[in-house]
Design a binder for these strands. Structure first.
Lengths: 224, 224, 224, 224
DNA sequence: TATGAATGAGGCTTCATTCAT
DNA sequence: AATGAATGAAGCCTCATTCAT
């Protein structure tokens, strides 16, 4: 009786779930990100998260303490993943102009491809950055987010290609604004002005417009 | 039956606005906008809204049906107010270049000065534009939002000042992105990168950067 | 449809419950006292209290905020009731000896007759007086509890009947100890030593013993 | 099988008491007594007890079955310890008067010095003595608690020093009441009437008052 | 003997909403 | 037009306990 049944053993061997805390937590976090992104912090239901999980509601509290703890970790995990991808971009070999173009394109594409991340950041801003402020991890992670851009601009200015007043922080602000807004406000924008910019063709146009806008803002000699 | 009785009139005179349905509704809407902007739709509490009101919770249901009805009306009212201000901008007398500069500045400044409106739009996007979609009023209101820009660009292109591929919709997208993001993401941006762009001086810089970026994106011959 | 049914109207007319907040609160408090007395603060179930009530669980939170708020009010109400009864005792016309005897008898009998009050005080002591400490009302109420004894002892000492070192506070302590313990520890005492002192005859004996003990402790010339 | 293996012995030597079942149980019981005394039976948390223990939660269930089993054993252990101390009191050589004084003083002091024991008994009374009733051990232990007093009173009555109606059970009741209440109700008493009787000086006074009260209640010729 | 992981049941509390006047 | 009282449904969270090793 006290011997575990073969069935249970098998299930474990197959799924790797039980007695695998990290997998359980990762599974919860993945689900939580989706549900928080869809409904916001107060709109999300712990019950819904739990039911989409391979484990039970109780485990959420076991590992994350409470709903806010789960939200915070989900947010951290989302930021961590973004940074991980950004670091894979290797722009150092390219000339400044091309590197900057690539960076804008990458940011635009990445935001476009990860609406859940965008939504989590929107939600976090609705909460005035309260949870991000409490997470040293996220702030540390992100401080580095500007390093690549900083080096590109440094090189571009050294070569006389970029304007002397091109400030990495402001350029990052510009790139982020265009890439972020494109996703965050898609719903209201397309409702009011139609879907023209939401189609594949439309997105291609605004992406190009964004690249040109950033380049022309930075280049010493803007392209006509 | 819509005429207040003499007794009601008297009470009205004493209290200032009891028995004045429109004033009661306006009061509720003003409070609701603030509370929804602060907490989101599910985060907002009908009780909190009611307590900040000069009237009672029952009146909210009396006039707006339910929480979502109140949210929708608050959203409509916010959009309506924006449009009212935009219409006061008279750019027709100006030459296209200056008119466009003014429009960018106005949008930037207006968004900066009305964070509650920005937050309502963020919230609405969190809800995938569900409530805006249900409101013919808002869509009609906003369709006109692009008319001024359309005329400016038309004139600029006619005069050979602006690029031929300058599309009012895309330019509006660009202006909105910069102006909106500047407010919507202030919390997370400043937490991660510091307050440099949030100060008065910083805001002045990004405002100028935004104007230049839009102009250089549109001008046939960008300014170096 | 919107007209209330005759049945509901009748019920209201009969019970006086609905739309009678004070009766509802009093009803809740009466039940709460019993359940808290039986199970303690953490042992009590809000659901149990609600089900024994003529109203719903929701009303408990409506009127008392939370479980602790209900406990606090129930405690206050219990103390208030005790004081109300004590004030009805009129000992001023009696000579000091007889007055003191009467006071001891009254206290002993009252505690005996109100085990729920005793249990609430036990429970409150288990909580280190935390809730009583937070209630100005209870402290104010009880400060007066010693006034009658103070006057009796004053008179007895003035007449040379009572010892000069008879301190009202200490005498009150003694009276309380005997009367309180008699009820509070009835369970363990009778389990260990049998029911002899719990029967009517046994209670009569200890009551007499208590009276004599207090008198002999106070009298200038103890009775043999 | 009760002999630890060599490997276990080694670990034992390192850790001090792992693999020493009795020490583990004693450790758990010591912690449990404190936590139950502080919070009551339902107020105590198994998790808190476990975390204050040198071992794990699982061991509590292993050794004591469930929370109530642990409580029962903690209660038993507390009673056992009290009896152990009482038996060390040797009053047989003293004359009855002095012996009785000593016994009152001892009881008063012991209760004063062991508030956790008092609190456990309070808690047990809140539970109507349910767990004590289930423990033959405790009842047997305590039956003897009155033996010493019985002999003292027997001797005092034989010598004509004590009243003929002095009943050991009633005198024990009196001694217990004063000594117990002094500790059990300290919180509420001092909150209502101030700390005067809680200070060292105040405790000295009530202790003396208790001794005198018991003596005067018992003595054939009370002291003025 | 020992333990970290896991959990079902049930507890407290909140919320938008409606009732009765 | 207005309101204080009332509520069902559902939310978040905790607890003693067991599992699997």
């Amino acid at each position: 009786m006290t011997k575990p049944s073969a069935g249970a053993q098998e299930r474990d061997r197959r799924t790797g779930w039980k007695q695998n805390p990290e997998a359980v937590q990762a599974n919860i976090l993945r689900v939580a990100r989706k549900v928080f992104a869809k409904n916001g912090l107060s709109g999300a239901r712990v019950d819904e998260i739990a039911s989409l999980t391979a484990t039970s509601k109780r485990m959420i509290y076991y590992y994350f303490g409470d709903k806010e703890g789960l939200y915070r970790k989900a947010l951290e995990e989302a930021y961590r993943e973004v940074r991980r991808k950004e670091e894979q971009l290797n722009l150092e070999g390219l000339d400044p102009k091309e590197a900057l173009e690539r960076l804008v394109e990458f940011t635009f594409d990445h935001h476009h491809a990860n609406p859940d991340f965008i939504r989590l950041v929107m939600i976090e801003n609705i909460h005035h950055g309260k949870y991000l402020a409490a997470s040293d991890l996220i702030r540390d992670l992100n401080r580095g987010a500007i390093t690549q851009l900083d080096q590109i601009i440094r090189r571009g200015r050294a070569q006389g290609l970029f304007r002397d007043d091109a400030d990495p922080l402001v350029v990052h602000w510009q790139i982020s604004a265009l890439s972020f807004f494109n996703v965050s406000n898609e719903a209201t924008f397309s409702l009011i002005f139609g879907e023209k910019l939401s189609t594949a063709a439309g997105q291609k146009r605004v992406r190009q417009w964004a690249v040109t806008a950033v380049m022309n803002a930075v280049l010493a000699e803007p392209i006509a």
